[in-house]
Computed example of a mutant assay.
Amino acid sequence: MDAQQLLLNRHSQPRLTEPGPNPDQLQLILQAALRAPDHAMLKPYEFVVAQEEGLNRLGEIFFESAQASGDSGESLARARLLPTRAPMVITVIAKVTEHPKVPPIEQHLTAGCALLQMQQMALALGLGGVWRSGNFARDNVVRDAFGLQQQDEIVGFLYLGTPVKATQPTTAKAITPYWRLL
């Protein structure tokens, strides 16, 4: 897949199965993340990879979060199983550092770009992925489980694996409503 195809056909693959990225693919995925735009080379991110038993540990964190939020029944049981929807989940954390020229928003954007780079590399390798966030990304129980400081943020959870079925990229959109001349 060439770069133009990759960029114009980016899409999410919400239904994933085994196999997930192998060790060599994971290294390429993580290397792609390190190429995200990064003002002052702060590397304002951390990647936490969950696979196999790690998916169950992540599910327990989600379960505890849901329990603390007052969820019950099916909603509570579902929280525990969310990470098992893919063979690998990479939690991307924006690790913000005080810097006179790089405000926190730029550091968050760098972490977000790193996540997108990982998803794009997975697609280029023939894998599928979906970037999820939601309440768990902002929940204090989850934040505490990951040892986050006040200024840190979970940018998202990147679910990776083999697509269950081929997904057709969305059709091209007219760009007219999204840009203008100044």
Rank of each mutant, 00 (worst) to 15 (best):
Q4H: 11
L6K: 03
N9H: 14
R10C: 02
S12E: 06
L16Y: 00
L16T: 09
L16S: 06
T17Y: 02
P23D: 11
D24W: 11
D24Y: 05
L26C: 03
Q27F: 03
L30M: 13
Q31Y: 09
A32H: 04
R35N: 05
A36D: 03
H39R: 03
L42H: 10
K43D: 12
Y45I: 02
A50V: 05
R57E: 08
S65P: 00
S65C: 08
Q67Y: 05
S72I: 03
S75D: 13
A77V: 00
A79K: 01
L81Q: 13
P83R: 07
P83F: 00
M88L: 15
A94V: 03
A94E: 09
K95T: 09
V96S: 03
V96E: 12
V102Y: 09
P103R: 11
E106K: 09
T110L: 06
G112D: 11
G112I: 10
G112C: 11
L116T: 15
Q120F: 10
M121H: 09
L123A: 15
L125R: 01
L127Q: 02
G128L: 12
G128R: 01
G129E: 01
F136Y: 06
A137D: 00
D139T: 00
N140L: 06
V141P: 06
V142M: 03
R143M: 03
R143D: 05
Q149G: 10
Q151S: 11
Q151Y: 02
Q151D: 14
D152L: 06
P163W: 05
V164E: 15
Q168S: 09
T170E: 15
A172W: 04
A174D: 15
R180Q: 14
